Amino acid sequence: MWLRRLASAAARSMQQKKVVVTSQAFDETYKVLTSAGLHVVKNQRTEPWSRDELISHACDAHAILAFMTDCCDRTLLDACPNLELIACALKGFDNFDIDLCAERGVAVTAVPDLLTVPTAELAVLLALGLGRRIREADHVVRSGAFKGWMPTLYGSGLAGAVIGIYGAGAVGRAVAERLKGFVPARLLYADPIALHESTTNNSNVTMDLANNLDDLLKACDLVFICTPLNPSTYHAINSENLSGAKPGMQLINISRGSCVDEVAVADALESGHLAGYAADVFEFEDWILNDKPDSIEARLLSHPKTLFSPHLGSAVTSARRDIEHAAAEEIIRWKKGEQFLYRVN
């Protein structure tokens, strides 16, 4: 009897399209997929699979629901000859070789509109926390040293500051909209494409275009890095333009770690030229880069004028649920032979 059941289950599995979910996901995400008759293999750990584990699960898969810890390169595609779709539960798809995927006939989708608000909120949180020295302040209270008010831990605020946005896409504009309530003296931005007048009018935020990134760094008290990672933005923040930045500038990175040279940032902090660095993203996360570092620059971790979060830009429960659902719906469209909403290749 059990042999017949096993054979029946194997036969059903052969008739189903196999989908691999590479990270722990919401139950609702799995239900969307399984209710469509898909055979779902899922990672039930919070830790990502190793590359070998991913390949062992995905080698016969037809679709992958991928997350930030994943990287799609030639090795993965060679190991997964049946693969037709990678549905990414993320916005920035720079860890996925979309051109090679297109060449192999593998569609790649992303969810660009669902991470903007929580990421912009976190950007402002990091800026406030860095300027108001919240990391040091929290330590004073927890250590037992706090005995009442003292004239110490003075920091900086956003009101009256000249603030720069590097990258005026959806996230950059959302950050600017949230900064408006803090009444900065001026908002500047640097982007290869100038914002259309209708875009600035719709957002109710006025931003002035800087001539280039170097000029933005020279003019601003605080700069938010909001640009995607591509060949032109790799190490866009580097030792050369940091040396010419406004003395005492603070830097907030919520885009991709490799948009900055972390070694150069550490040097600028140690020299005192840079007053602070906050980040939610780090160079070692950019898996697609062959020469990426293995870990965060140690001097950044030990420096008192830094503030970090572990890639929490979209880590709002409702947002993460919606992101996964959107990626799962792309898989359903693929199964039904329908057109994708957010294909990127």
Results as ranks from 00 to 15, higher is better:
1 M>F: 02
1 M>E: 06
4 R>E: 09
4 R>V: 12
7 A>D: 11
13 S>Q: 14
16 Q>V: 02
19 V>S: 05
19 V>C: 09
25 A>S: 15
27 D>S: 11
30 Y>E: 06
32 V>E: 11
33 L>G: 13
34 T>N: 05
39 H>Q: 07
43 N>S: 04
46 T>Q: 15
51 R>D: 02
52 D>V: 08
53 E>P: 06
55 I>Q: 05
55 I>N: 01
56 S>N: 11
58 A>G: 06
60 D>Q: 14
61 A>L: 14
64 I>F: 09
66 A>V: 06
67 F>A: 04
70 D>E: 12
72 C>F: 04
75 T>I: 04
76 L>V: 03
77 L>P: 04
77 L>Y: 05
79 A>E: 02
81 P>R: 15
83 L>I: 10
84 E>P: 03
87 A>C: 13
89 A>N: 06
89 A>H: 02
90 L>S: 13
91 K>L: 10
94 D>E: 09
95 N>C: 10
98 I>F: 13
99 D>E: 15
100 L>G: 03
102 A>E: 08
103 E>H: 15
105 G>C: 12
106 V>Y: 11
110 A>Y: 01
120 A>Y: 08
122 L>G: 04
122 L>I: 03
125 L>W: 09
125 L>T: 05
128 L>G: 06
130 L>H: 11
131 G>P: 10
134 I>M: 15
135 R>K: 05
138 D>N: 14
142 R>M: 13
142 R>D: 08
143 S>G: 14
144 G>D: 02
145 A>G: 13
146 F>R: 00
155 G>L: 01
157 G>L: 11
162 V>Q: 09
163 I>A: 02
166 Y>G: 02
171 V>P: 01
173 R>W: 00
174 A>G: 13
176 A>V: 11
176 A>F: 10
188 L>H: 01
192 P>E: 12
194 A>Q: 15
195 L>K: 01
201 N>Y: 05
202 N>M: 08
202 N>V: 07
206 T>A: 13
210 A>W: 13
221 D>M: 10
221 D>R: 04
222 L>H: 00
223 V>I: 12
223 V>E: 04
225 I>S: 07
225 I>K: 02
226 C>A: 15
226 C>T: 14
232 S>G: 12
233 T>L: 05
234 Y>N: 08
236 A>I: 08
236 A>K: 10
240 E>Y: 12
244 G>K: 08
246 K>P: 03
247 P>E: 08
248 G>L: 01
250 Q>L: 14
252 I>A: 04
252 I>W: 02
256 R>S: 07
258 S>G: 13
261 D>E: 04
264 A>W: 02
265 V>T: 00
266 A>C: 05
266 A>M: 09
268 A>R: 00
268 A>Y: 00
270 E>A: 01
271 S>F: 08
276 G>F: 01
277 Y>I: 00
277 Y>F: 11
289 L>R: 14
291 D>W: 07
293 P>E: 02
295 S>N: 03
300 L>N: 08
304 P>L: 06
305 K>D: 14
310 P>S: 03
316 V>F: 13
318 S>Y: 12
332 I>E: 07
333 R>K: 09
335 K>Y: 04
335 K>W: 06
338 E>Q: 15
341 L>R: 12
344 V>A: 00
